[in-house]
Amino acid sequence: MKRISQILLFLVSSSAFSQTQFTIELKAPAFEKDSLLLAPPATSRNIISIYSLNLNADNKSVKSIGNSKGALVKIQPQDNTIGGTVPCPMPMIMMGPKEDKKGFQQSKMFFIENGNLEIQIADKNLTLMLPPDAVINNDYKKLKEYLQQADEKLRPFEQNNPADLENKEKRLKAYIKKNPESYPAFWEIIDAFSKYGFHKNYLTDLPLFSKKIKNSSCFKDFEKILILENSTNVGGNFPDIDFGPESKITKTTFSDYKITLIDYWSTSCKPCIKELPELVKLYEKYKDKGVNFISVADDKTQQRMDLANKIFKENKVTWKSYFDTTKEFTRKLNAGGYPLFIVVDRNGKILSKELGGQETLEAVIEKHLK
Rank of each mutant, 00 (worst) to 15 (best):
Q302E: 12
N334W: 01
T260S: 08
K327Q: 11
I311G: 06
K289V: 14
K313A: 15
K327H: 08
D263M: 12
K224D: 10
S255R: 06
P239M: 04
I241G: 01
K327Y: 11
A308Q: 07
I259S: 05
G244A: 06
T330V: 14
L333G: 05
F238K: 00
L228C: 11
K289C: 13
S247G: 06
Y338P: 07
Y257V: 01
K310A: 12
S266L: 09
D240I: 01
A297T: 01
G235W: 09
R331H: 13
K316A: 15
S266Y: 06
F293L: 06
I273K: 13
E229D: 10
N334R: 07
K285A: 09
V291P: 08
A308G: 02
M305R: 15
N233Y: 14
P271A: 05
D240S: 00
G336C: 09
E229A: 15
E284M: 12
V280E: 05
S255M: 05
P239Q: 06
F341L: 12
T330L: 11
E229V: 12
C272W: 02
P339A: 04
T260K: 02
E328A: 06
K270D: 11
W265V: 03
T318K: 10
M305F: 06
R304G: 03
L279S: 09
S268H: 12
S266R: 10
T330D: 10
S255C: 03
A308K: 05
D256N: 15
K274P: 00
Q302I: 10
K224A: 13
L307T: 08
S231H: 12
N334D: 09
P277W: 13
V296C: 07
G236P: 02
K327R: 15
Y264V: 15
V296F: 05
Y286C: 03
I227D: 14
N315Y: 08
F341P: 02
C272F: 03
F238A: 01
D324T: 08
T326Y: 03
K258H: 14
D306S: 15
M305K: 14
C269H: 03
A308I: 01
T318F: 04
T318N: 07
Y283L: 07
G235N: 07
T260G: 02
T267I: 09
S266D: 09
T232H: 02
Y264A: 15
K258R: 14
